[in-house]
């Protein structure tokens, strides 16, 4: 904060009901400035901080309310939490077409360093939903973090990219009446180096890097604690998530898979506010609450006892 900043005193606020303070930061991440929010408890913080990693494309916007809420609730439980806009998103300095998966992973690692410097946290966990979960897992792998919380993580990048292109093709058909298959979009991507997927500029280099993601292969040494949450309508366990749990355990970590069942499970990661008679309503409030509750309970059971002991010892 500089003295010539007319808004400096308004960078933070306190919520005595939740027992937290939130502070806006303008860190340098992945080569340029961006905006981040640090949520900390008003009382003594646990030495365990969380970095929240957002997802890709429009999911970044749709999942943000859930990420804000879990940050505040974790801070209320004693954990410092940092959330930030990766380059190409939100208030970050670089343009949207500079967004890339690898720069999100780099950004998450830099955010972890910032969190440790800002709060004195000695242990770090990464949390993310959908592709943000994949970012979180790879960041945790790279710096040998202590914990991971993944909500519906993307395991295979190739399938995620195919779904993105399919969604773009459906939008083309619905909005312009122009039938355009995934293969047409893929061809356009090859020819021009960029395609418009639901208003989001998807670059060929990003498609190629995301297509190469295989979380089961890329996790090779993470030995911390992991929570993987599946959001399901039926409650049937996803085979790929079970394999992820197996992989996390095989490299030395402690991992658990939990399933949150909800009738709107298919809407997870999609638009949550809908209009009815001139009034907007949040249709996913209880789904968010279930996810947050499961995650908080896991954090307190699995992580906080150790952290609290260390805090008492110090």
């Amino acid at each position: 904060m500089t003295t010539d900043d007319p808004f400096g005193p308004l960078r933070s606020y306190e919520d005595s009901r939740l027992g937290i303070r939130e502070i806006f930061l303008v860190p340098f991440v992945s080569g340029a400035e961006t905006v981040a929010v640090l949520s900390v408890p008003l009382g003594q913080a646990l030495p365990f901080g969380w970095v929240i990693c957002h997802s890709f494309g429009m999911e970044q916007l749709y999942l943000q309310p859930l990420e804000v809420e879990v940050a505040r609730r974790l801070a209320s439980a004693g954990f410092p939490v940092l959330r930030f806009h990766a380059q190409g998103y939100g208030d970050s300095a670089l343009p949207t077409d500079r967004a890339s998966f690898r720069s999100q992973v780099e950004g998450a690692i830099q955010a972890a360093n910032l969190l440790m410097e800002s709060t004195g946290a000695s242990e770090i966990g990464f949390l993310g939903a959908r592709l943000g979960g994949t970012v979180a897992a790879l960041a945790a792998e790279r710096i040998e973090a202590s914990a991971l919380a993944l909500w519906e993580p993307v395991i295979e990048g190739k399938r995620y990219v195919e779904a993105l292109l399919r969604s773009g093709a459906v939008t083309e058909l619905a909005s312009r009446g122009r039938e355009q298959g995934e293969s047409d979009l893929a061809q356009q991507l090859h020819q021009t180096g960029i395609v418009d997927v639901d208003g989001f500029p998807l670059r060929r280099a990003v498609v190629e890097e995301m297509s190469g993601i295989d979380l089961l292969r890329e996790i090779s040494r993470f030995s911390g604690s992991s929570l993987v949450v599946q959001v399901s309508r039926s409650g049937t366990e996803r085979a790929d998530l079970r394999r992820l749990i197996g992989r996390l355990a095989s490299v030395g970590g402690r991992a658990s898979l939990q399933i949150v069942t909800h009738p709107l499970a298919r809407m997870f990661g999609l638009q949550r506010y809908h209009s009815s008679r001139g009034r907007k309503a949040d249709t996913q409030g209880d789904l968010s609450e279930a996810l947050i509750w499961r995650t908080l309970a896991w954090c307190l059971e699995s992580l906080a006892p150790d952290s609290i002991r260390r805090l008492e010892g110090a």
Binding site: L10, R11, S12, V35
Partner: peptide
């Protein structure tokens, strides 16, 4: 330059960014 801030409003805080 971007200046993020929280503006007090009736017991809540409105997040904003001034450029």
């Amino acid at each position: 330059r971007d200046h993020p801030l929280f503006v007090p409003f009736r017991g809540d805080h409105l997040a904003a960014v001034v450029t």
